[in-house]
Amino acid sequence: MKKIGHQDPLWVKAIIHALLITACLITIYPILRIMTISLRPGDRLMSTSLAIIPPDATFLNYKAALFEKDFLLWLWNSLVITLATAVIGLSLASTSAYAISRWKFPGRNAMLIFLLGTQMIPAAMLMVPLYLLAAKFGLINTYRGLVIAYSVSAVPFSIWILKGYYDSIPTTLEEAAMIDGASRMYTFWKIILPLTTPALAIAFLFNFMNSWNEFMLARIMLPKAGMFTWPLGLQSLQGQFTTQWGVYAASSMMISVPVVALFLYSSKWLVNGLTAGSVKG
């Protein structure tokens, strides 16, 4: 992209910054409120104060989450499942997307419509049949069922993203390599995949977020306290009537920080990875 010669006059700049700052405040304030609650001492969680750092701030809730609850165990379980499934999901999607991008085979359009269709199934519709299926194969109370389910569940969207990105890579690259005698899969592995890094990063991120945040399926598939993933753990802090809001907020903060960091780190690819395929202008 070329640098555009002229810049906005000062008053336009001022308005733009004012608008952006307002938008940022609206965006970040609710998140800061979680932090505020996590810092309040346990006996006064409800307050009409709007101060972001409460005057009597304390880290007791963080201490409670870390040392009195199985917080680290929940996080560990989630992390193991999530990383494994994100890697599997990515390998499944990247190969399929490549085939769909490069070959016009019979049934290709039907496949694309099918992928789109998978996004339309109401989640509530899947719960009971998936549980029955898992029970049939003895996958209840194990991580196996979840690993299989999560591995595939973000595949449609990943294929979508990756296919768009492959489309934007000219086929001449592969053709040249193949004239030199390289096999198709070697070219894919050595030439195409490295070029796809932004889209791969995005697909990985989607797979990651998808399993990291999943709650409904985990609830019925993991009926054992020691096996909880973090969403189940957080849920256990909520009682029928009373919730340990302080500990809840502290845990939420600690869970969000690494994910947000990962997200922001990969956001440099986010902008290109999501749209590359669709823009040809």
Binding site: L132, I140, I220
Partner: peptide, 25 residues
């Protein structure tokens, strides 16, 4: 004895689903 806490409504829903699959507590 393996103890598992489930919120009241979740306990009912999940028990029905589990009973359907023959994996009830």
């Amino acid at each position: 004895i393996e103890v598992l806490n489930k919120e009241v409504e979740a306990l009912r829903e999940d028990f029905q689903t589990a009973a359907l699959a023959g994996t009830a507590p």
